[in-house]
């Protein structure tokens, strides 16, 4: 009974972690940006979904419109992150090449804090919960599971599948892959690199937006969570190997289940501690991560 409970709860939260982290790793793989405003972006999506859903009233339609507005807000913020922060720093002639990464890190970190404070100012830092897309519960072999939890897992996997198809089966996806391997070669073949970057940031915005809205419906989100969400995506990505999509997926499940096991078997108040210990060990013994290249 307890085992089944852990299995179900762990699966739902891990799927959501995977969805949140996969965009983060994609951006790093393709454009070399570690986006530290990631958590703030997810918070923006959840809070806007809550706000628009609330403005439209209690009908079922308003939940979907709210969710769409949340994702749209994350998309806008992601493109703004690229246009206003990442791209100008990467192109700036006055920043030495070897310092660009650290400038991008700092820039996105500050941008994330600005987004977080704006949300706290406009909507307070009280947690908000997005109304779930589906209400109700179902018994799975005696474990009472909210429909919304199942939907979260299904949607996360559907999106991850779509992303896989996009990257592996379309021309655009192949150019993304090429950009991650050899950007200079790609420009020599006549591809406009900035268009590819724009596309990958748009994909990232949508993924992070959906992850944010789902998180808002599953657990609830406050502007104070922005830092923790970035840290969790960051640990998953480092654990899995920077830039490795499959590594991030595996790591998301390792983190999700380790947290759930800790919460159930030891204590909910130290749920993140074993993950951080594991991260330290991995960084020591296998700095490239579980499935990292290099």
């Amino acid at each position: 009974m307890l085992a089944l409970q852990i299995l179900i709860d762990g699966f739902a939260i891990s799927s959501l972690y995977a969805l949140g982290a996969i965009g983060f790793t994609l951006i790093f793989g393709v454009s070399g940006v570690l986006n530290l405003s990631h958590g703030a972006l997810m918070v923006v999506a959840a809070v806007i979904a809550w706000w628009v859903g609330g403005l439209l009233g209690p009908g079922t339609g308003s939940v979907y419109v709210g969710a769409a507005a949340g994702v749209a807000a994350a998309l806008v913020c992601a493109l703004a992150t690229y246009r206003l922060i990442a791209s100008p720093i990467q192109k700036s002639p006055s920043i030495p090449r070897e310092e660009k990464e650290i400038f991008v890190l700092t820039g996105t970190l500050l941008w994330g804090i600005m987004l977080q404070e704006a949300i706290a100012y406009l909507f307070t830092n009280n947690p908000k919960t997005v109304r779930p897309l589906v209400e109700g519960v179902v018994m799975i072999l005696g474990v009472r599971t909210p429909h919304n939890e199942i939907l979260t897992a299904v949607l996360s996997w559907a999106l991850i599948g779509l992303l896989w198809l996009l990257v592996n089966r379309t021309r655009m996806g192949k150019s993304l892959l090429a950009a991650s391997m050899n950007p200079r070669g790609l420009t020599l073949l006549g591809f406009e690199l900035s268009n590819i970057y724009l596309a990958v940031w748009a994909i990232y915005g949508i993924l992070a937006g959906i992850a944010g809205v789902l998180l808002g419906a599953f657990l609830g989100v406050s502007s104070d969570n922005a830092g923790t969400l970035t840290a969790s995506a960051f640990s998953i990505v480092v654990l899995g190997g920077l830039g490795s999509v499959s590594g991030s997926l595996v790591a998301a499940y390792v983190v999700g289940y380790l947290e759930t096991l800790t919460a159930y078997l030891i204590s909910p108040s130290i749920r993140t501690v074993p993950v951080l210990l594991l991260l330290v060990v991995v960084v020591y013994l296998r700095p490239q991560g579980l499935l990292g290249r290099r």
């Binding site: 409970q5 709860d9 657990l219 609830g220 909910p268 108040s269 130290i270």
Partner: peptide
Amino acid sequence: IRLSPDTTDFTPIFNK
């Protein structure tokens, strides 16, 4: 039960 103030997932607590 004493829970950490930064708990976000209360499922295990309610199940317990």
